[in-house]
Design a protein around this nucleic acid. Sequence first.
DNA 1: TGTCATTTTAAACGCATGTTTAACTTTAGC
DNA 2: GCTAAAGTTAAACATGCGTTTAAAATGACA
Lengths: 210, 210
Amino acid sequence: MDTKTKILNAAENLFADKGFTGTSLREITSAAEVNLAAVNYHFGSKKELIKALMKRYLDVLSPELQGSLQRVMEDNENLTLEQVFEAFVEPLLTLNQLKEQGTSNFLQLLGHSYTDSQGFLRWFITTNYPGIIDNFVMAVHKAYPELSSQDMFWRLHFTMGTAVFAMSSTSALIDIAQNDFNAEVDIEGVIRRLIPYVAAGVGANTVVAG
Amino acid sequence: MDTKTKILNAAENLFADKGFTGTSLREITSAAEVNLAAVNYHFGSKKELIKALMKRYLDVLSPELQGSLQRVMEDNENLTLEQVFEAFVEPLLTLNQLKEQGTSNFLQLLGHSYTDSQGFLRWFITTNYPGIIDNFVMAVHKAYPELSSQDMFWRLHFTMGTAVFAMSSTSALIDIAQNDFNAEVDIEGVIRRLIPYVAAGVGANTVVAG
DNA sequence: TGTCATTTTAAACGCATGTTTAACTTTAGC
DNA sequence: GCTAAAGTTAAACATGCGTTTAAAATGACA
């Protein structure tokens, strides 16, 4: 395996676990068993390494997700919000194929993208992959046309917060849940519990201001 | 105003805006116009400063909130989830009285408590103010008795994530919303939009596993 | 007024971080 | 086999951080 890939793989696991700012280049290069300077030589900087890591996933996810959302919009005459959110599951789970073993860390990484690093990755994603958000808004609008654009704005951000927060703390929560309930839980299980929650939240009745 | 209070006030605003790890003691002491060493002299360490800051709010909020939740549980025979979440609003807004002007930064601080600093404040709050969570769980259970303890666990964490994330990015989102909709939004407005969302999320129908 | 505790101050300490340097090693092409 | 590019390495650099130190200033009180 070449140095670049070794770094990417080691960085992915460490970043997912401890966040971007919580992981040092020395930890990464030590786990990857390469020299410290290799990150700057191959990627230029830590920021560029993070971008490259996210790009590896987003370049696969983005077309998959847009296709999935478009399919669910075309097929259904009476589209429900649950169906919209369900459209995320399959594309997300196919990301696991990117890793030769185990499940991908993309969702945890996405979580840290929002909470770490003063949101520079938030900018990176929204400017480089705007199609994801656009299609999502369109699908939600089709499933719930009465929702005003202002309510749409807030509820989508609430939803993003819910998902992102759940994903960035997934490993800790799964540990607690398994101790408390003796029930095995994996990332897919969390996603499947998340869907009815956010679907109901986005689909809640709106109240008249007053 | 004495040095201790000057530090607390400056720290509160900076922490709320940029997070705990994102704010240095040098920024704080510079904004407070006190010497750098003053923080360690008066509080002992940065961690203790953060604790003191949260304590200033939690000592007021905790009894208020427990009272509010107990009141809403006693009065209502057919308690709804909306009512449970509504019970948070008044106690939270009374926190503004702690500041001589403007709205309190408590919710933003609470947001950062979860995302910053590898969750040491999460521990601090849950161990020092367990009554808040207990009463909350009891109220939700009364409003939605069919919810299994496992679903309760996940949905409460989703809810916490939603609220915390919304609050920690409130200032950024409010700016965007005001530009896009020309509508004035404040923290109370965000809370009032949040309530139907999380109430619907927690109250969503549960699906049988499979 | 003199004394002692409290507070403030400027400077330095120790440490960890991302990054850069310059020498060294490996690789590929002719 | 030589050469030039590509890659690797150990060391140092520059910066920012929380914290500590010891001297100076301030305050309270006899």
